[in-house]
Deep mutational scan, measured.
Amino acid sequence: NITNLCPFDEVFNATRFASVYAWNRKRISNCVADYSVLYNFAPFFAFKCYGVSPTKLNDLCFTNVYADSFVIRGNEVSQIAPGQTGNIADYNYKLPDDFTGCVIAWNSNKLDSKVGGNYNYLYRLFRKSNLKPFERDISTEIYQAGNKPCNGVAGFNCYFPLRSYGFRPTYGVGHQPYRVVVLSFELLHAPATVCGPKKST
């Protein structure tokens, strides 16, 4: 009989979020998941679920829940969905086509923008091939755009693969920082350890 609540607040209220190319993952297990707390949290810009209804989450049990978190621009949030393409979905964070879970995003301009620009948040701009679902690539190898080998030196046709967002408070909404948490639900042939409040007695 599990009684402790799942530590969703640790994920959602973290002081610093990860850059999207180096997205953070927390495994959540052996706890009671009260999703209504999240669902009623006012400032969400997006709360979209795939393969599961957000209002039914509290009735369900899962083997594991993974909480992935990172920061992207407002106009990139739409790429955090199954079957998407674009710089983020291709080179930074890719969801599987059969994704079961929820994508939760909110504007973090007050936290993550600075006058003069916040350059701490990076994304991958160049990559030889697209990421596989949930693949994480933190390499900083110089990207070779031409035929000539770069030998690890940036220059003509040789690019550092990461780019900084440089968030400023005055940017338009599409270019403002958004914090994103992706909850993915794993249902294995194993005992369920993460259940909603109704199922955990």
Rank of each mutant, 00 (worst) to 15 (best):
44 F>Q: 11
166 G>H: 02
180 V>C: 03
118 N>K: 00
22 A>E: 15
54 P>Y: 14
78 S>V: 12
55 T>I: 08
44 F>V: 05
29 S>I: 03
94 K>H: 01
187 L>P: 08
4 N>H: 11
27 R>N: 11
126 F>N: 07
40 N>Y: 02
116 G>V: 00
155 G>T: 15
189 H>I: 14
114 K>L: 00
59 D>K: 01
129 S>C: 15
98 D>E: 06
122 L>D: 04
193 T>W: 06
199 K>R: 14
40 N>T: 00
85 T>N: 14
188 L>C: 07
119 Y>W: 01
141 E>R: 10
76 E>D: 07
21 Y>H: 03
80 I>V: 13
174 G>P: 01
121 Y>L: 01
78 S>H: 13
115 V>E: 00
32 V>N: 12
27 R>C: 04
130 N>V: 03
52 V>T: 07
122 L>R: 15
4 N>C: 14
40 N>E: 15
4 N>I: 03
148 K>R: 09
132 K>L: 00
5 L>R: 12
44 F>M: 06
107 N>A: 09
64 N>S: 10
189 H>P: 00
37 V>F: 02
134 F>M: 10
56 K>V: 11
8 F>I: 11
53 S>Y: 05
109 N>R: 08
98 D>T: 03
59 D>Y: 08
170 T>G: 10
154 A>I: 03
116 G>S: 04
104 I>W: 02
22 A>T: 10
148 K>E: 03
143 Y>V: 12
67 A>V: 12
187 L>F: 04
190 A>P: 09
78 S>R: 02
194 V>W: 12
90 D>K: 14
126 F>L: 12
147 N>V: 15
118 N>Q: 04
50 Y>F: 03
57 L>W: 09
145 A>G: 06
43 P>K: 09
154 A>K: 12
138 I>R: 07
147 N>K: 11
78 S>G: 07
145 A>C: 13
154 A>P: 07
144 Q>E: 07
85 T>S: 04
18 A>P: 08
91 Y>L: 10
163 R>I: 01
54 P>H: 14
39 Y>P: 11
153 V>P: 14
90 D>L: 02
157 N>H: 08
85 T>M: 08
168 R>M: 10
65 V>G: 06
75 N>G: 07
1 N>E: 01
132 K>N: 15
114 K>D: 00
197 P>W: 13
7 P>K: 03
174 G>F: 04
118 N>H: 00
163 R>Q: 03
155 G>R: 09
29 S>V: 09
58 N>Q: 06
14 A>E: 01
194 V>N: 07
111 L>Q: 14
4 N>K: 08
95 L>M: 06
173 V>T: 06
200 S>M: 15
184 S>Y: 15
130 N>R: 12
173 V>H: 15
83 G>C: 01
4 N>T: 10
186 E>W: 01
197 P>E: 02
168 R>H: 11
24 N>Q: 00
155 G>L: 01
7 P>S: 12
186 E>G: 15
186 E>H: 11
126 F>W: 00
123 Y>W: 05
41 F>M: 15
73 R>Q: 02
77 V>M: 05
18 A>H: 07
193 T>P: 04
130 N>M: 02
200 S>G: 14
45 F>C: 11
153 V>L: 12
115 V>Q: 00
196 G>P: 15
83 G>S: 05
149 P>Y: 06
33 A>M: 14
147 N>P: 02
75 N>I: 02
189 H>Q: 14
100 T>F: 03
159 Y>R: 11
84 Q>E: 08
166 G>N: 09
139 S>D: 14
3 T>K: 01
128 K>Y: 00
97 D>L: 11
191 P>Q: 09
154 A>W: 11
117 G>N: 00
113 S>C: 08
126 F>C: 11
191 P>A: 14
160 F>W: 07
97 D>Q: 15
160 F>Q: 10
